[in-house]
């Protein structure tokens, strides 16, 4: 095989990525660290400002809680799907996939209908005379969280089903024959074996939530900003390009750190022999 060919095939992609991803990123980020010599002042300023720190922490908090809730809701449901008769499994998978293919604007809009002042929950509670005044649920951190969970739960379920389907039923039966009831067998066998899937799912949910824009923008309002909405506000509303670029780099680094940390934990926990590395 001529050497030139394989590089020829790769060149268009590499050029496109360098010119339209790497260069734009560098050209936006460079000014934030080079201000008459190397300086991290812009970043230090960001983390000194309580307003920004609050937004940064909110972003992390929402992403973390969303990931945990997705695990709690997703693990049993995925286990249920993976043990279903294949006929039903296909249908349940389709049901899980459908929201994922639906536009995130629509999915956020669904919760505006439910949580809003005149939304479904308030209407029901008022009609039942449980409350007299509508409760404020929309435009709170709670609504952002619900919307984020709603956005990413299908992703978690689909990832987990993929892993759980491959756990041989013999494994469960072996555990049962050794004296484990179904719950014990689930915790001692299925859960540890699903760990790689749980980690992959968590990475997807966590990093997805970190950069989600639509949901916090529609359900959080201006009071509950996250990093993704902040970058938009900084640049298009305030015209603070350097400030926006600072946030951009912080988002990228946070994403990478989260990925690395979770993958490190996965490698630590998933010890089934060196050959599995």
């Amino acid at each position: 095989m001529k050497k030139s060919l394989k590089y020829l095939l790769l060149v268009p992609g590499i050029v496109m990525l360098v010119v339209f991803l790497v260069m734009p990123l560098l050209s936006t980020i460079m000014p934030t660290v080079f201000d008459q010599g190397f300086s991290l002042k812009a970043y230090i300023d960001f983390f000194k400002d309580p307003y920004y720190v609050q937004i940064f922490m909110r972003t992390l908090r929402v992403s973390l809680i969303a990931a945990i809730v997705c695990i709690i809701l997703g693990v049993p449901t995925s286990y249920f799907i993976s043990r279903c008769h294949p006929k039903w499994r296909g249908l349940l998978m389709a049901i899980s996939i459908f929201p994922m293919l639906t536009n995130s604007v629509i999915r956020a809009f669904a919760w505006i209908n439910i949580l809003g002042k005149n939304g479904v929950i308030n209407t029901i509670l008022m009609n039942l005379h449980i409350i007299d005044e509508p409760i404020t649920m929309l435009y709170t951190e709670f609504s952002v969280l619900i919307g984020t969970i709603y956005l990413f739960l299908p992703l978690m379920i689909i990832t987990l089903v993929g892993v759980m389907e491959n756990i041989d039923n013999d494994m469960m039966e072996a555990a049962e024959s050794l004296g484990a009831n179904r719950l014990t067998a689930f915790f001692k066998v299925v859960l540890p074996l699903s760990l790689p899937g749980i980690i992959v799912g968590s990475v997807l949910v966590f990093t997805g939530a970190l950069s989600a824009y639509t949901t916090p923008s529609l359900l959080g309002g201006t009071k509950n900003m996250v990093m993704a909405t902040l970058i938009n506000q900084k640049s298009t509303v305030l015209g603070d390009w350097t400030g926006a670029s600072v946030i951009a780099l912080i988002m990228i680094i946070t994403t990478i750190v989260v990925m690395k940390v979770l993958n490190y934990i996965a490698a630590k926990l998933d010890k089934r022999g060196e050959s599995n590395a």
């Binding site: 590499i14 926006a244 951009a248």
Partner: peptide, 28 residues
Amino acid sequence: LLKSFFLSPTIVPGVVVGYSIFQFAILK
């Protein structure tokens, strides 16, 4: 490494991709 490079747009949050293209390709 090459494969990760080709998958790298997933690491960059979409907002950042949009923002940096706007700045670089459209404004500059």
